[in-house]
């Protein structure tokens, strides 16, 4: 696992401009292993986000100072000098790049008719090191089936950065591959922000199983009915339910007999009853299982609960 994380870090560092790449590569392996993001801010040193917070990659911060040219050059490089081809994701503040990485982009938004139509004068980039943790869902999957052998629609909950997407990705892989107890199911992934499959030019860069279809870059509210009609899935997976339209689309799909897998920003199930949108989700009675993620780093705990909540059973 450690070596894999170091390899992913070095792959990510390859995307940096040469001067910063050299500094990022010189980081000790222990730091590379726990790196979650590389952050570039104009006139600030290049930093790496780890469990301990943001750390400069160079002992002398002056050496790691990021210039406007560095940022512009990196954007040009990762978009392969084809900013027009990435305009849609750039408009939404991120870029999906080769290797399954995502870059959050900050700068000056170009507005037209009240909507963001582009981004210019880039001032900050957050290169997220997407890490697959193959097998983390293995202890969770057996608890997601009911007595009749059907997959229960499941919500994954945690605070931001808690590992929801990583768990969902592995859940999709497990369900799509099947096991000796449960046959493989057809899974459709509506990957609005290219985080689950990390698609690059139409190809998934992460392991999602061999019965998985990915609709990339499409809003969930539009994508769920599309995959439902076009791909006849048995399971639909989406990341980060955030608005009423998403909830409505998922409810409609659930009433067609499809199991759902989704993530949501909430620390625990009690929080679901506190916000109107989540109350609406609970009232729809679409989801019957919740997986709450606790702990941090390699010591994450997954608690599976029935919805409405009963006593949870913990598995690590």
């Amino acid at each position: 696992m450690g070596k894999e994380r170091i390899r992913r870090y070095e792959q990510a560092a390859e995307l940096l401009p040469p001067r910063l790449r050299r500094l990022a590569m010189e980081l000790p392996d222990a730091r590379k292993e726990c790196a979650e993001e590389l952050r570039l801010r104009v006139c600030e040193p290049l930093t790496v986000l780890t469990d301990e917070g943001e750390l400069s990659v160079a002992p002398a911060e002056r050496d790691a100072l990021v210039t406007e040219e560095d940022v512009a050059r990196m954007v040009a490089g990762v978009t392969e000098y084809s900013r027009y081809a990435s305009a849609e994701t750039l408009r939404r503040g991120y870029l999906s790049v080769r290797g399954g990485f995502r870059i959050g982009v900050c700068g000056t938004a170009v507005m037209r008719d009240g909507t963001v139509c582009g981004m210019k004068d880039f001032s900050g980039l957050a290169l997220r090191i997407v890490c697959e943790r193959i097998g983390i869902a293995a202890p969770v999957v057996p608890r997601l089936w009911d007595e009749a052998g059907r997959l229960c629609s499941t919500l994954i909950l945690s605070a931001p950065g808690g590992g929801k997407t990583t768990l969902l990705r592995d859940l999709i892989r497990c369900i799509s591959l099947g096991s000796t107890e449960h046959r493989a199911l057809r899974v459709a992934v509506v990957d609005e922000r290219s985080e689950l499959a990390a698609s690059y030019q139409g190809r998934a860069q992460t392991e999602l199983g061999n019965h998985t279809d990915v609709l990339d870059g499409c809003p969930k509210a539009l994508g769920v009915p599309m995959v439902l009609r076009a791909m006849s899935p048995q399971v639909i997976a989406v990341d980060e339910i955030a608005c009423a339209e998403d909830v409505a689309a998922l409810c409609a799909a659930a009433h067609c007999g499809v199991a759902l897998l989704a993530t949501i920003h909430a620390a625990h199930t009690d929080e679901l009853a506190c916000r109107p949108l989540w109350r609406q989700l609970l009232a729809s009675e679409v989801f019957s299982r919740a997986v709450t993620i606790g702990g941090a780093g390699n010591d994450r705990m997954y608690t599976v609960e029935a919805i409405p909540c009963s006593a949870g059973s913990a598995c690590s």
């Binding site: 978009t79 392969e80 000098y81 084809s82 027009y84 081809a85 305009a87 030019q201």
Partner: peptide
């Protein structure tokens, strides 16, 4: 090609 398919430069 750019107008119809947004084909990247490479």
């Amino acid at each position: 090609e750019v107008r119809l398919l947004l084909t990247p430069m490479p």
